[in-house]
Computed example of a mutant assay.
Amino acid sequence: MTFEALDVSLDENCFSDFIKRYHFNEEDKNEIIKLYRKVHPRVHAIFHHIVEEDENGGKVATVVASLGRAFDEYQNVLVRQQDIHGAYIVDCLGLELLSKAYDQIDVKIHEMTGLYAGGYIYAGSKEFPLEEIPAVMKKLGQKKIRYNEAYMLLPKKSVLFTTKLYDKKQESHSKCAECNAVNCSMRVEKYKASHVDNEAETKASPKEKGLIHLYTGEGKGKTTAAIGLSVRAAGAGKKVIFSQFMKGRDTSELNSFEILPNITVIRKEEDMGWFKKDDEESIALFTKAHNEILDKITDKVRTGKCDVLVLDEVTYPWNFGIIDKARLQDLIANKPENMEIVLTGRNADDFFVEHADYITRMEKVKHPFDAGIQGRLGIEF
């Protein structure tokens, strides 16, 4: 038993048709494209099929296909954020990618059998009752796509169907497992209704008091720990601002942050080189850059749309005196009650220590740099 990979994607030129098909407004286009760019790199589309003879001696294919867990995970994040509209967009993007998958499945079945797929009979239809799913899934003999007690396939962007195979190519057939109408105007209302309880539950959940973390010490892992906490928080639907001081060159975590929802990066775009503590020009350059970063952070925090604020390497501008300390103190000491703050950097000042609720001191016991091994892409940066 093997799964076949499917390469499904949407051409950005087709989004106008997508908007019409799913009854969006033209002003939704930028958000649709943005959400597509975030979720698509995580899509893992696959299908598996078997071919059997029917009672009349003809051939019938039974197919199970999935886009993977990306849509489930991303939709859950958006629902927790009470962004039902965004979650619905992602749902529709999944349906559209499934339609692309169907096209490829038809082609691959023809390549493997020399026959052409006819109309799809989906699990849950009159001809394919839900109660038959366990027996059919057992016959397929795969474990990547499952079903729950309600016979819902998991991951949710998965389908199970049968299709009769023909010697000649058939006319275009319906490709919507929902209701045989891809542009069903009821789908958005059904989606919103199915998530209203989840939304109400999210609104009713009291927010916890935010705490302050400090990762300091001579050992490796301070920024790495902050990155890990940020990813975990984003996965829980929290809005994260990940700010970096003293850094300008690209580091690998930035590539990961680009495809993760809920993480906003604030840092200097250009590489300023090494800081020279005895050079007035360098002092002025870094001070200006760090205060500009602080301005952006403060503006973001004031909007109330920050659950976790990371101040990566913040101890360095503090210790070198190349940041407005009074404003930084105010940001930390008078933070919004529910906002979490993560501080990183060596030689943490007493101010950071006194305000931290968590303090982790990284101790260097052994480091490959001492043996002449330089920092490695994807490991140190």
Score class of each variant (00 low, 15 high):
Thr163Trp: 07
Cys184Asp: 13
Arg327Leu: 04
Ala87Arg: 09
Asn347Met: 08
Thr224Gln: 13
Asp307Ser: 03
Asp299Leu: 13
Gly57Leu: 04
Asn180Phe: 11
His85Asn: 09
Gln75Arg: 14
Lys59Arg: 14
His85Cys: 08
Glu127Gln: 04
Tyr316Ser: 15
Ala225Arg: 00
Met339Phe: 04
Glu27Gly: 01
Glu280Ile: 00
Ile145Asp: 04
Phe3Thr: 06
Phe3Asn: 03
Ala150Pro: 03
Ile89Gln: 03
Glu269Val: 15
Arg302Ser: 14
Gln82Ala: 05
Thr264Gly: 00
Leu67Asn: 03
Gly210Met: 05
Thr344His: 01
Asp295Cys: 13
Ser174Asp: 07
Asn334Arg: 14
Leu130Met: 11
Val265Pro: 00
Asp295Ser: 13
Val314Phe: 04
Leu97Ala: 07
Gly210His: 08
Ala234Phe: 01
Ala226Met: 06
Val79Met: 15
Leu93Pro: 02
Asp167Leu: 09
Ile241Asp: 03
Leu93Tyr: 00
Pro41Ala: 06
Val159Arg: 14
His173Ala: 13
Tyr74Trp: 01
Trp274Ser: 15
Asn319Ser: 11
Lys207Asn: 10
Tyr122Leu: 10
Leu67Ala: 08
Met246Gly: 06
Leu260Gln: 05
Gly94Thr: 05
Arg361Glu: 15
Asp28Ser: 11
Arg69Trp: 10
Gly219Ile: 08
Leu97Cys: 05
Val43Met: 03
Gly141Val: 11
Thr2Gln: 12
Tyr116Ile: 04
Gly228Ile: 05
Pro206Cys: 04
Ile293Lys: 08
Lys164His: 06
Arg232Ser: 00
Ala200Gly: 04
Val310Cys: 10
Ile379Pro: 02
Ile379Arg: 14
Val308His: 00
Tyr147Cys: 01
Glu111Ala: 09
Leu294Lys: 07
Ile322Asp: 04
Lys100Cys: 11
Ala233Gln: 02
Ile297Cys: 04
Glu354Trp: 05
Thr162Tyr: 01
Thr298Leu: 06
Trp274Gln: 13
Glu292Phe: 02
Ile266Glu: 12
Ala326Gly: 01
Arg249Thr: 05
Trp274Pro: 11
Glu199Ala: 13
Asp72Lys: 09
Glu281Asn: 08
Glu27Thr: 12
Phe18Leu: 14
Cys306Thr: 14
Cys179Trp: 10
Ile373Gln: 09
Gly321Trp: 05
Gly237Phe: 00
Asp271Thr: 10
Lys190Pro: 01
His110Thr: 02
Asn338Leu: 02
Lys126Phe: 02
Cys14Thr: 15
Leu343Ile: 11
Leu343Ala: 06
Asp11Gln: 14
Gln329Phe: 13
Ile133Asn: 07
Lys34Ile: 09
His48Asn: 12
Glu189His: 12
Gly235Asp: 02
Ile84Leu: 15
Ala135Cys: 11
Asp299Thr: 15
Val342Met: 07
Arg346Cys: 10
Tyr22Arg: 03
Leu93Met: 12
Lys175Val: 12
Gly119Leu: 08
Ser99Thr: 14
Gly114Ser: 10
Arg21Val: 08
Glu281Gln: 10
Lys29Gln: 15
Tyr116His: 06
Leu294Trp: 09
Glu55Ala: 07
Leu311Pro: 13
Thr251Gly: 07
Val353Arg: 14
Val107Met: 03
Lys168Asp: 04
Tyr120Ser: 08
Thr287Val: 02
Arg376Pro: 00
Cys184Asn: 06
Arg42Thr: 04
Gln374Tyr: 06
Phe161Tyr: 15
Ser205Trp: 03
Lys144Thr: 05
Glu127Gly: 02
Met152Glu: 15
Pro368Ile: 08
His367Glu: 10
His48Thr: 06
Asp312His: 08
Glu12Arg: 11
